[in-house]
Design a protein around this nucleic acid. Sequence first.
DNA 1: CGTGTGATTGACGCCTGTCAACGTCTGTGG
DNA 2: CCACAGACGTTGACAGGCGTCAATCACACG
Lengths: 235, 235
Amino acid sequence: MINRDQIPPCDDCLHNYDSIFKHLTPEEHAIVEREKVCNTYKRGSVIYHEGSRTNGFYCINSGIIKIFKTGIDGREQIIAFAKKGGIIGYRSILSNELACSSAKVIEDATLCFVPGETLIKLVKTNGNFSMAIMQQTCKELGEANAFITDIAQKTVRERLAEILLKLMEIFELNEDGVLQISLTREELANIVGTATESVIRLLSEFKHDKLIDLNGRKIKILDIKQLEKISNAFN
Amino acid sequence: MINRDQIPPCDDCLHNYDSIFKHLTPEEHAIVEREKVCNTYKRGSVIYHEGSRTNGFYCINSGIIKIFKTGIDGREQIIAFAKKGGIIGYRSILSNELACSSAKVIEDATLCFVPGETLIKLVKTNGNFSMAIMQQTCKELGEANAFITDIAQKTVRERLAEILLKLMEIFELNEDGVLQISLTREELANIVGTATESVIRLLSEFKHDKLIDLNGRKIKILDIKQLEKISNAFN
DNA sequence: CGTGTGATTGACGCCTGTCAACGTCTGTGG
DNA sequence: CCACAGACGTTGACAGGCGTCAATCACACG
């Protein structure tokens, strides 16, 4: 499951224009580079568990991670995804709480682990970095609040259409218009907050209405305008 | 609506042990004290509007504020409350976005306005203050994620019981066991994420089962254990 | 006293969750 | 190479939770 032989070059992460690490000085870069530990994880691996104490955060070098909370009957509620350039697990470090969610690999991933003390040191000493990570948190908070409103007010049908569009924004379509992420029906249900059967029924309804095309887990987006209309996009 | 005559002493806010301002140095205290502007607001007043650009944040000296997003048909979804010692409106300052929610007075309030630049300056220069405000954000984020899971998985009945308990934690009971906040049925519905009629029906059901007692907007909590059981408390 | 806002109650029906059965596909072991 | 197990996907039946509509009541206020 874990392969310590392949240490990926973290230059990508450190200098990527949309990575928060771009706010670090060269010296700080060097510190992170020195203290990081990289590993690869296969689909299904758990990075960290809800309720556990994490002592660092992870930077995604490749792959896709799902962040979820476990509710009634062990049912997952997917809160967010993380992909290349993103960081996960930093929240509980900063708030000094136990992890409030779990992280699991959806597509084989390479992650770099950075100790929590390093993060806190950087936050306290580098105002720009501090602002950047605060902005990330605030952005996530805004998105969470928007999702609360959606899930509280919209129907399952509207939410599913919206989630398809949101996934499209995050993972984009390939040249054939197919969503570049592969989720089980159950996972889709656990984002939307509904039953697996409902997702299946609505997806085939969307297919019948020529809004999407289905081929196993591959979802081809055909009619964005109409999906937006269904999702009641007040965003 | 606004009364500029009464400038409340902000010592309370600045030195209150659960205020984030306790992390400021005396010099920084003085800066905030000098730059703040205090006003009183009556019930119903809007502090700021979703989508507007705010150029500062507010510290609550007294009163109660509700934070909400406006969804379909102008229906409110209440996201959070703020009371004495709390701050609101700081998120959009830090993330440099438009306000993603609105703030409205529920109980007559006195607020102190502090300019955004002051906040950013403090965040960038005072590591401890920075950490404290980051912790507040992370805490809110954790709560938002928990609420997403609840609203996605629990029934209206379970959520209502949970909200009553949550309100109890935030606003506490008076000596008679009555919730120290007065909300309309519609506002309750807009927290739970349901229809006003459903709240009314479930409240009278709770009353019939001797879990609560009702007297207009006053809600007396009778059986906490049972409410916890109903709310399916996995928290 | 009229008006308006909020609270309540009843009727009705649809959306959606649950249960059950069955089909499909993949990987594993004999 | 085939049989089988197990995970996942699909479909149908069914009930009930909950939203919507409408009527009525209660209460405050100008």
